[in-house]
């Protein structure tokens, strides 16, 4: 009997202690983690896409509810006009999901830039989707309301040699972003108006 009580007490105390410790550490690191996620994962791509904007897109961000998910949009101000948003899309790559950022001008619905944020493609081959500017520059100027395809599939994008699946995944991600944009365009325009009167 005594042994059972001892076991219960020891395990309970140990678990309670570890729970408390974890709660404290989680509380202490929460803000830092959210900031890191924005800066590290999306920051470089956002900066690349909204190059030359006069504000800080990570500060000027807003969220829109899209079904069950909340999507973040980052606003870029060019020549005093807040008319560009960057947001995320996802596509299926060779090694898993490819996350990417697409910047769209809301006046003419054209893509002003694209950058891959997260991927698990083969280093040195598929990873070029993220590192090779020649590939990502092809997306500039495409219409953001049409699906995007690689050349063998009847589209305009030259695939990275040896990484057709990855290139298709990126195009899928851009198409995914285009769908989101088409669906949410009125709300996006509203939010920007509210933010920059």
């Amino acid at each position: 009997m005594r042994e059972i009580i001892k076991m219960i007490v020891v395990l309970t105390v140990l678990s309670a202690f570890s729970g408390g410790l974890l709660a404290a550490i989680r509380g202490g690191t929460k803000d830092k983690i959210e900031y890191q996620q924005l800066v590290f994962v999306k920051g470089p791509a956002i900066k690349n896409i909204l190059e030359g904007c006069s504000n800080d897109p990570i500060v000027d961000r807003f969220k829109i509810k899209d079904g069950d998910i909340e999507r973040s949009f980052f606003v870029g101000v060019f020549d005093g006009k807040a008319d560009t948003v960057a947001f995320e899309g996802f596509g299926k790559g060779f090694g898993g999901d490819i996350g990417l950022m697409v910047g769209v001008n809301i006046n003419d619905d054209k893509i002003i830039g694209m950058g891959v944020t997260t991927h698990s493609e083969t280093p040195g081959i598929g990873s070029k989707a993220k590192t090779d500017p020649k590939f990502s520059h092809q997306f500039k100027g495409l219409a953001a309301i049409e699906p995007c395809k690689v050349k063998p599939d009847g589209g305009k994008i030259d695939a990275i040699s040896g990484a057709t699946v990855t290139s298709r995944g990126v195009c899928g991600g851009v198409s995914n972003a285009a769908e989101i944009y088409k669906r949410l365009k009125p709300q996006i325009a509203d939010e920007i108006k509210k933010k920059f009167k």
């Binding site: 974890l22 690191t29 830092k32 890191q36 996620q37 590290f40 994962v41």
Partner: peptide, 15 residues
């Protein structure tokens, strides 16, 4: 417990 501590710290400082 310690593994989760490491995980949180890595997320916060070496993302």
């Amino acid at each position: 417990t310690f593994v989760i501590v490491v995980e949180l710290l890595m997320q916060a400082y070496t993302y």
